[in-house]
Design a protein around this nucleic acid. Structure first.
Length: 367
DNA sequence: AATCCGTGGTG
DNA sequence: TCACCAAGGAT
């Protein structure tokens, strides 16, 4: 051979499992060592953890478990209660699918989650990753759960030059070959713990890594350049107006967004359309109700996945008995915290009314 | 296959 | 400030 192989050593799953036994994170949805996990809790946590940090999920998970202790309880709950409990966590289609999935498990599977990847995959809100994760963690199936952590770890270990997402099939097959037959669930959680605590996106702690020796990227000093990714551009700023109406009986005008699309099924004060060239000076023309509108100083800014939003807030007081326009309703100000209000809309209400009693949105007045 | 979906933390 | 990212799925 004229050129030496980068590394002939293969990563040993047992080395990772030994590391996991000493350094595993203690998480509320994670069963104690040697104990088989409850499928309902594993599934619930996996849905919440999709594209969401452990820190953000923890309080929501505990609250959900208290309000909906079993899959039956969740299936029987009204949709409003589920959406309200999810409000603030983001990606609200997850909440709708979560509810639909609970109903399907009760109606089609007698209240017991199916134990194979293929059957799990048929349920709403469960894709390739979650099916494998639940199968491995809750049912000891030899399944490869490939999430963002695993993609990062594998792309570094094997120095995958192809960019994501094109590299997904290759990374999946590389992962499948490493899943051990004896502890597939622990292996899945071990790779994710490694990615979350050692093999981090920036400044990975390679010196502490159980797979430092076989890691090809580390051998080249190029670990931080993996995984390669396609760039995506940030969206254009959209502007609009939000209308906060306070009726004399201390109620606020709200509506529910359509079930599909952005913030689907969530509550909000009425707003104009959101467009790049929206003129706030003409916002009163879009008002849902006739009133003496007061344009509040400053704006509310919010960043969605694919575009930033800037809302001008208009405020009005109206007389008791004023009827709500079509498809809108009056909610007592003291019950706003029971509404399924996404973060952006909480910011709007806080901007106009001050802190929401029992709410937990942060104020954000600018300009 | 590429786009659409929230939010909060971080360097 | 800002780009990046976090236990992805549906269409």
């Amino acid at each position: 051979m004229l050129t030496p192989a980068p590394s002939a050593t293969k990563p040993d799953p047992q080395d990772l499992l030994a590391w996991y036994d000493r350094h595993r994170r203690d998480l509320p949805w994670r069963a104690k060592p040697g104990v088989t996990a409850d499928p309902y809790r594993v599934w619930l946590s996996e849905i919440m953890l999709q594209q969401t940090t452990v820190t953000a999920v923890r309080p929501y998970y505990l609250n959900f478990l208290e309000r909906f202790p079993t899959v039956e309880a969740l299936a029987e709950a009204p949709s409003d209660a589920v959406m309200q409990a999810w409000a603030g966590l983001g990606y609200y289609s997850r909440a709708r699918n979560l509810h639909a999935c609970a109903k399907a498990v009760v109606e089609k599977h007698g209240g017991l989650f199916p134990g194979t990847e293929a059957e799990l995959l048929k349920l709403p809100g469960i894709g390739a990753y979650t099916a494998a994760a639940v199968a491995a963690i809750a049912f000891d199936q030899k399944a490869a759960a490939v999430d963002g952590n695993v993609e990062r770890v594998m792309s570094r270990i094997f120095m995958v030059e192809e960019a994501l997402p094109k590299a997904k099939p290759l990374i999946r097959s590389l992962t499948e070959e490493l899943v051990p037959a004896d502890r597939p669930g622990d292996f899945a959680q071990a790779v994710m713990d490694l990615g979350a605590t050692i093999c981090t996106p920036k400044r990975p702690a390679c010196a502490l890594c159980p797979w430092m020796v076989p890691c090809r990227a580390r051998a080249e000093g190029l670990q931080e350049t993996f995984p390669k990714k396609q760039k995506k551009e940030t969206g254009q700023l959209r502007k609009g107006a939000a209308f906060v109406v306070l009726r004399a009986d201390d109620t606020i005008l709200l509506r529910t967004r359509p079930p599909q699309g952005l913030l689907g099924g969530m509550a909000e004060p009425p707003t104009s359309t959101w467009e790049p060239d929206y003129q706030p000076s003409r916002a009163v023309l879009d008002a849902p109700i006739e009133a003496r509108w007061q344009r509040l100083p400053g704006t509310v800014k919010h960043v969605f996945t694919h575009f930033p939003l800037e809302l001008t807030v208009l405020f009005a007081k109206v007389a008791k008995g004023t009827p709500a326009p079509e498809d809108m309703r009056w909610t007592p100000r003291l019950q706003l915290h029971e509404e399924a209000l996404p973060g952006a809309m909480k910011k709007v209400l806080v901007h106009a009314l001050g802190e929401i009693p029992g709410g937990k949105a942060k104020a954000s007045a600018k300009d």
